[in-house]
């Protein structure tokens, strides 16, 4: 599954500079353009970026809209959480860079996507999940009582287990009736 399939919202589309130039000026966000930005991946799997002639070592890619669209408004940040700049849309960049950044997004936002719910057993305030995911079969435990299973958009469900690990049901409406019934009890 590519990242593009993940994005469920069609509303969020990057527009150049927004509709209010005054606001953009006030925000002073530095947008990285493909012309003067170069991303490289080191042998040690670290991402480096050279922007405006300055090299930054060990940077991370943060998504502004990790649930609705992972390809737009990416924030490139240092480990100290300082923003080096933003990327409006991955599409502006050459394919190789796109792939590199997509991998970094995957690394940071790793969350198996549930393709099939096998069973959800509720017992004593916890639900025990068994599911087929994009990363294989996963079994995990979710605390009951609300808050751990959240609808992020109309059909995208985020499930957080007892350790804070995240799982995603990307299309709630594509679950079978049986699966949906199991999931619904925990929502």
């Amino acid at each position: 599954m590519t990242l593009k399939d993940v994005s469920v919202s069609e509303i969020l589309r990057p527009e150049d500079g927004g509709s209010s130039p005054g606001l953009a000026e006030a925000a002073q966000i530095r947008y990285l353009s493909p012309d003067d930005t170069e991303f490289t991946l080191t042998e040690g799997h670290m991402l480096n970026v050279k922007a405006g002639g300055k090299e930054h070592v060990g940077v991370y890619v943060h998504c502004s809209f990790p649930h609705t669209n992972k390809r737009i408004y990416l924030s490139i940040r240092t480990v100290e959480n300082e923003e080096i700049g933003m990327i409006r849309s991955l599409d502006e960049f050459p394919e190789e860079t796109q792939r590199m950044l997509e991998e970094q997004v995957e690394l940071r936002y790793f969350a198996p996507e549930i393709s099939k719910v096998l069973s959800v057993k509720e017992e004593f305030g916890y639900s025990y999940w068994d599911a087929e995911t994009t990363s294989g079969y996963c079994r995990f435990t979710v605390r009951g009582g609300g808050g751990s299973v959240k609808l992020m958009t109309a059909s995208r469900l985020l499930i957080v287990d007892v350790d804070g690990n995240r799982f995603i049901i990307p299309h709630l409406d594509r679950l079978s009736d049986k699966e949906y019934k199991m999931v619904e009890v925990c929502m």
Partner: peptide, 11 residues
């Protein structure tokens, strides 16, 4: 990569 994973909390 392993094709299955049991997270903590699960028996």
């Amino acid at each position: 990569p392993a094709r299955e994973k049991t997270y903590s909390g699960y028996a």
